[in-house]
Design a protein around this nucleic acid. Sequence first.
DNA 1: TCTGGGGTCCTAGGACCC
DNA 2: TCTGGGGTCCTAGGACCC
Length: 423
Amino acid sequence: MDFAVLVDCNSFYASCERVFNPSLNNKPVAVLSNNDGCVIACTKEAKKIGIKMGTPFFKCKKLMEENNGKFFSSNYTLYGDLSNRVMDVLVSYPAEHEIYSIDEAFLLFNNETIKSIFAIGRDIRYSVKRLTGVPVSVGIASTKTLAKIANHIAKKSKNGVYVFCSQKQVNKVMKITPVSEVWGIGRQYSKKLQKNNIYTAEDLCKMPDTWIRKLMTNRGLQTVWELRGYPCVPTTSDRVEKKGINTSRSFSHLVTDKHELYEALAYYTTLNAEKLRKQNSCTQMVCVYLSTNHFRDGPQYRAAHTISLPTATAETPLLIRAAYEAMDKIFKSGYSYKKTGCLFLGLIPEISNSNNLFFKTYYKSAEQNMMKVMDKVNEKYGRDTLRYASTGIKRSWTMNRKLLSPAYTTSWKHIKNVEFSEK
DNA sequence: TCTGGGGTCCTAGGACCC
DNA sequence: TCTGGGGTCCTAGGACCC
């Protein structure tokens, strides 16, 4: 039989914090979003005391303190590195691999028996934990959507592995799975379905295809077919290049000064351009947006503007200039701004951009070599070793990360000290 | 005081073409 | 009274995911 195996790290960000800090084991741990805004990951101990995903930090700070738990700012350097290690273990298995997100991956196995696939699931769980320190759960079924459901069950089970062994077993689970818990069915669709008296995965499967397609488009129909046991969600791991590249951050405080705003924008554009060059693309459009804080009373304003470039490029200075031009179109003084961002659209491969007679091609330019040097230096010696003056020196707008843990695995300065004492 | 960020896919409808 | 039909391309907006 063929099987879809979903490996999902347990409360990944929080587990990463535990890997190098075992004193956190069995205690509530939660990780916060940028600017220490709200909870984006929490361990089961944290859930137990009533901490929920998405809750603002200031609303649950006290609860955590009372229960001897700990919060962390998000440390993407650490999580990214541990994610790579987990994925390295997973791709060593003889299967088709699809790395789906920072903390989960599908492995597709052919010609296995229930017994052999169960053994593989247990081995995966054991190996990942031993080699990386990260706990994972494994859900196994005939389709990815069912594997997701299996994974939910595995998360709650003792040995962390769950296999759908028979159609009878699938039916039993579908009866008690709320439709809102099905992968691919979010809040809006759940509401619509409930209005039509569809509450469980089983209810949904019984509906006719035409009706499902009308309500939830072809994607929704795909989901239902997967629930019925026919694999039809395609593998996406061969898609490497992104279609759009975006960088935006909320500020640590409200920004009214035009100079500060432009400085932040230049910085986000620089980060965007680095991502662009990393995938060997050029961009044809630069879109800039900004907004005030919609959680607050007071005058609100949000706007966006897109500039089409005369020739596609990946040169940071040109992109900063375009971003400024876009910002000039939308900036209004008198407002307190919370956020700005920069989005590149219409990405094309670097090499194909050589057919414009009127401009020097990006591909051959000396500027490109300079970009390469900058990227290399910054990669080796750390971000911002070489930087543009327009991105600011003091950067008073940068986000708050007051509870940041060390970058244990990627910086010599932060490496963990272990002391032995003789007894 | 304090409420994240970065993606994907699909569809309807308008503009335009012959 | 009567006003074609069949395409393509683009964009905005809505849904989803982690």
